[in-house]
Design a protein around this nucleic acid. Structure first.
Lengths: 338, 338
DNA sequence: TTGAAAGCGCTAACAA
DNA sequence: TTGTTAGCGCTTTCAA
């Protein structure tokens, strides 16, 4: 077994408490003792046992983050923000990839109950508000990204879905489009609600009639977006533009267009959401809405850790960041429509 | 504070030891007692404290994975494999994004020393073999992906770099190319050595003279690939094809070509390595070498966890998987060259 | 089949 | 400024 604190204490001729104080930068140690202990620690190549520390201090210096799929860059960029912010504060991050399975997400939430993690960040539309509230009620530290939950103690960071969606659809309208389809994500997710709301608002403000036949959804995934596009194409309802609630689904739309020989943007304009890295490499490059993914990750991790250490100055728990529209070639083809 | 095992014991009218036995599926408990305890646990919503368990059992059921940049899909796909395999065995995964900084990687390696993790997987070219050997010598469980280390106790999983590189370059030669540039990664990494070796072999076998002016390197990153391409363009040495040691750098080559107005594949053929998701969406789609990223992650996580539980049947520690060439339009432009 | 008791390695309250 | 001591909550001998 490794050396323990008493081994160091013995060798340095002090007590375990003193070694512990040195380890934790306590001011109650004379400089001389401190140096002696430090030297001994170095000599013995001593490393404090994390589990013992966790048990004694009732904190693991670890947070978890639950995402549906780490491969999707929207999530990996958020994770990167979380990881960096956590690292700077000496926190570790446990990665919980739910594979879009509710059951797995629930199991990962259990890491809170058994104190494997001090807090948990959710970036998933699957777990319901009720479940999240329930955990908060029990006193667990939680944060969500991309949505918001009523409970005041639950941190959240999201973007202005309604506004940027309105902006995106208005942009399409300004390009001359009057028949604009909407491909949404999980129909009961906040992202979807709000983005659809923005879509409807833009239509209404421009006196464009809403057509239910132009609405479909694709679970925020490429395959779902593809299927939705195919369904839309096969209906009688014509359309010349699509607002896709995220980029992954827009990728599916691109695939469907390639298959059907539909040219973007000449025959169909497309706007997505997220500004995933891949979108700039597409042909044509995809117009999209920049989501400050890394920044949201950093923001939430910082606030969560502050909260864990009773350092949340403002007491603010809800953060909304403005996202901005990035216009690329997929929606940049001016023409007149009737 | 939460309920503890003695609280459950008291309520159920048994001893803490019995509750512990139930929790750990010991066969030394009568079915009747077991049911009673289980019911009590349920009623009290009891959750065993992880830190206490870790301290007592001397294992944390956690492994770490160090990568240079989680956003790059090569790494996130490996992580996904590791996470899935770990989850199936009730292990947690701590994500260590080194931002390509050696210092951060060293610090993360420290999680082994203080027993925060039971084992660590390295997917980085930065940490030297010596450092890895040193940790192994101390008895820590380690695994590496994408390279191999001599030490027999260190697990590794990689692909046949020499062979597939030879294949890739031979493919270019078969397309009529005689002046083929090579853009490598970190010059002292095993990936780079072996891929360059394959490149040289292919040249030699086809009696194509090696030209030092056609060799450059880009640290396995997009920006590095871009810079390398620009340098190559600016030399007097002409070339009609590039073998890039990974896809990220090939993205940089694409960018450099766009800037210089060089058409792919008409004026320059490009082949990368990794089959990052992005490559199939490029224009033209990038020829590349498929690396079984997810599978390598699964493989190494499984073997590492087996090793932690003394269940490595075969005792094999070195795994090499054959990668296959994927030919897309970036290198599929036949013509005669002189 | 069950319980009592020791101890994993650390920190912190209290005493000196 | 330092040391003594008592746990943190669990598992695991050992004894019954």
């Amino acid at each position: 077994m490794d050396n323990k604190i008493v081994d160091v204490a013995k060798k340095a001729g002090v007590s375990a408490a003193t070694v512990s104080r040195v380890l934790n930068d306590s001011s109650l140690v004379s400089e001389k003792t401190k140096q002696k202990v430090l030297k001994t620690i170095e000599e013995m190549d001593y490393h404090p046992n994390a589990a013992a520390k966790h048990l004694r201090s009732q904190r693991t210096m670890t947070i978890g983050i639950i995402v549906p799929d780490i491969i999707v860059s929207y999530f990996s960029e958020i994770i990167k923000g979380v990881e960096n912010a956590a690292y700077a504060r000496k926190y570790k991050v446990i990665i919980c990839d739910s594979d879009n399975e509710m059951e797995k997400e629930m199991e990962y939430l259990g890491l809170l109950s058994n104190r494997t993690v001090d807090g948990m960040i959710l970036v998933t539309p699957l777990v319901s508000d009720d479940v999240i509230e329930e955990y908060a009620q029990k006193g667990y530290a939680l944060g969500v990204i991309g949505r918001a939950v009523e409970n005041e103690s639950i941190l959240s960071c999201k973007t202005n879905n309604v506004e940027f969606s309105e902006m995106a659809v208005r942009h399409l309208i300004e390009q001359g489009h009057k028949q604009i389809a909407y491909i949404g994500g999980y129909s009961d997710s906040m992202e979807n609600y709000e983005r659809m709301e923005g879509y409807l608002k833009a239509l209404k403000d421009n006196r464009i009639p809403f057509k239910p036949g132009l609405i479909d959804s694709g679970y925020f995934e490429e395959a779902g977006g593809y299927a939705a596009a195919i369904r839309l194409f096969d209906r009688q309802e014509p359309f010349t533009a699509v607002y896709s609630a995220n980029d992954e689904m827009a990728l599916g739309v691109y695939r469907a267009c390639r298959e059907r020989g539909i040219r973007i943007p000449e025959e169909l304009s497309v706007v997505g959401v997220d500004n995933n890295r891949i979108t700039q490499y597409l042909l044509p490059p995809l117009s999209t809405v920049e989501q400050p993914k890394y920044e949201m990750g950093v923001c939430l991790a910082e606030k969560l850790i502050d909260q864990l250490n009773d350092q949340s100055e403002s007491g603010q728990t809800k953060y909304v960041i403005d996202a901005r529209l990035i216009i690329r070639d997929s929606s940049n083809y001016s023409r007149k429509r009737t």
